[in-house]
């Protein structure tokens, strides 16, 4: 994982009212915890964290008033429309520590099977992996150009970096090209639903 530098601001007030005010000013409330140290609450800039999160970065170096910690994004909360991050939880990690985290699968290319009438099914959009924090990739690229109808890319075909192991079964499919199923349109008119007796 690439290390992202993130500058935070210490939190003075806690609770929903101060968080709401901070969000209106473009800040996101965040926490970092773990490694036997005290929890720390801080704010980060929304545009900055949103950009890093959409770029699939999960490991960040957080600097809050001179105190620096390496944190892995543990939990993300979005608003109802998914446009804004409303809270971030980080867990402290050392770069040489063995961690378990999920890595996003990026599908690249157009499958041959899709051109010949198949449907591309991404079974796992994320894969759970274990390895040293500094060696875990941000994304796993899966090239599907050679996939025909009925073919699949399985966990063992992913080509993970050395020292990183997938926690899913090695024969678990990640991407499959299915044969196209034509839906049959029912022609009969529906009847009124039955009322539960005794209700």
């Amino acid at each position: 994982m690439e290390r992202i530098q993130l500058k935070g601001r210490a939190r003075k007030g806690h609770g929903s009212a101060s968080s709401r005010r901070a969000r209106l000013d473009g800040w996101v409330p965040a926490n970092i915890y773990g490694h036997g140290k005290a929890n720390m609450s801080f704010y980060v800039r929304h545009d900055e964290i949103f950009r890093h999160i959409t770029d699939e970065a999960r490991l960040m170096t957080i600097d809050v008033g001179g105190q620096t910690d390496s944190g892995l994004v543990k939990e993300l909360q979005f608003d109802a429309f998914g446009d804004q991050i409303i809270h971030v939880d980080f867990t402290r990690v050392s770069l040489d520590e063995i961690i378990e985290t999920s890595v996003v699968v990026h599908v690249a290319g157009n499958a041959k099977g899709v051109a010949s009438g198949g449907v591309l099914d991404v079974v796992h959009h994320e894969i759970l992996v274990r390895g040293q924090a500094q060696n875990i990739p941000d994304t796993i690229e899966v090239d599907v150009t050679e996939l025909g109808v009925g073919d699949a890319i399985r966990v063992k075909d992913l080509g993970l970096p050395e020292g990183i192991e997938a926690l899913a079964g090695e024969d678990e499919p990640v991407v499959i090209v299915h044969d196209r199923v034509v839906e049959e349109e029912p022609t009969e008119e529906g009847e009124a639903p039955e009322e539960t007796p005794g209700a």
């Binding site: 109802a80 429309f81 529906g190 639903p193 009322e195 209700a199």
Partner: peptide, 26 residues
């Protein structure tokens, strides 16, 4: 054929109001 329940507990229900944003299925 349009979707409809197979079986319901009550045939007629009150109108209700749609309040607040979705917290599930969003």
């Amino acid at each position: 054929m349009a979707l409809m329940p197979k079986r319901v507990k009550h045939r007629k229900v009150h109108k209700g109001r749609v309040r607040r944003n979705a917290t599930r299925g969003n």
